[in-house]
Nucleic acid binder design. Structure first.
Lengths: 155, 155
DNA sequence: CTTTGTGCAAAGATTTTGCATTGCG
DNA sequence: CGCAATGCAAAATCTTTGCACAAAG
C-alpha cells in the first residue's frame, strides 16, 4: 500500500511535468516543489502554509509565485476550486482518488470515506438539471464515535 | 403555498428580532432591512449586491454596517458563509429548509436542489463509522446547462 | 439620557500585477 | 541567448476598525 502510494505520487509528478511542458510553460524548481508539497498534503492547504513549507525545503519562493503557480494548476486541473473559510482561501488537490469527509464538530477529527453511491446519486441529480458534473465535495458534520461517548458538547 | 411562505418569512423576522434583542443588541432599520433582504433572496447573496439592494429601498446603509450585521447574524446562526468564488464571499441564509448546491465553475451560478436520497446515504455511511451526523454540505461543481452550450472555457 | 449603532475613512488582509532580473530550454 | 518565470513592491480587492455623530430604548 505504501509502495503504491509513492508510486502514484511519482506518476502524478511526471504527469504534472508533462502537462506543464505541453502547455509551453517551463518546469521550474518552484513549480515542482509546490506540486510536490500539494501531493504530499493529505487534506487542504492554504497559501501562507505553502509558502512556509516550500521555504523550509530551502527553495526560495515568493507568495506571488505560489499564487501564479496555483492558477496554472487550476487551469491544468490539478487543484480544485477554492473555498474560503475565515478569510483564508483553501485549495484542494483534485488528483488524489476521490473521497469525502466526516468532520467531527467536537474534536475536529476528519474521517475520509469513499462511496460509490454518491457518484450514482450525483449523476442522477445532475441529469435532472442538465448539469455536467466535474467533481463534488460532500462534508458530513457531526460527532465521531469517541466524542459521542465522552462529551456531548459541540464547540 | 405562497401564503404559508409569507407567513414563514414573517415568523422568521420576528424570530430574528427577538434574537437580536435577547442578545442585548438594538433592532435598527438597517438590521431589519438586511434581514428582510436575506430572507427575500431565494438563493445566495454577496455583500456588494446587498448594499445596493438596501439602498434602492431608500434605507441608508454602509458596507461596514452590512459586514457588521452579517457577523452578528452568523453568530446568531441566521446566515452562513458558503463559499468564495473569484474573491467574492457568498453568504446564505441558514434557516431555510436543507438543500445542496450545483455550482457552475464557468459562470458561478448556484443551483439549489434537494434530495431525500442524500439523507439516506448519509445515514448509511455514518452508521458504518459510528458517526452521529448533524448536517451535511454537498456541492457538485461542473457546468450548467447554459455554459455547456455556449462556451467551454472555465474562467 | 445612556449606550449602542452607523458612516466614513483609514487600516488590515489577501490576491494580483508591472517591471527589472534570473534562469530554463 | 531569448523569452518565460521569479521576486519585489506597489496596486487592487475585500473586510475590519477607530472615532465622531446619530438614534434606539
Amino acid at each position: 500500500m505504501k509502495r503504491s502510494k509513492n508510486k502514484t505520487q511519482k506518476r502524478l509528478l511526471e504527469e504534472f511535468k508533462r502537462a506543464v511542458k505541453n502547455k509551453g510553460l517551463r518546469y521550474t524548481p518552484q513549480r515542482e516543489q509546490i506540486f510536490k508539497e500539494i501531493i504530499t498534503t493529505k487534506g487542504h492547504f492554504e497559501i501562507e502554509q505553502m509558502v512556509h513549507k516550500i521555504r523550509e525545503k530551502n527553495i526560495p519562493v515568493s507568495r506571488a509565485t505560489v499564487y501564479r503557480t496555483l492558477n496554472i494548476m487550476k487551469e491544468l486541473g490539478f487543484v480544485e476550486e477554492v473555498i474560503k473559510i475565515k478569510n483564508k482561501t483553501i485549495y484542494e488537490i483534485s488528483i488524489k482518488e476521490h473521497h469525502d469527509h466526516l468532520i467531527c464538530t467536537s474534536c475536529g477529527k476528519i474521517i475520509e470515506f469513499q462511496s460509490q453511491d454518491i457518484e450514482k446519486l450525483q449523476d442522477k441529480i445532475c441529469s435532472q438539471y442538465k448539469f455536467l458534473p466535474k467533481f463534488h465535495r460532500l462534508e458530513i458534520f457531526g460527532l465521531c464515535d469517541t466524542c459521542q461517548n465522552t462529551n456531548h458538547q459541540q464547540s
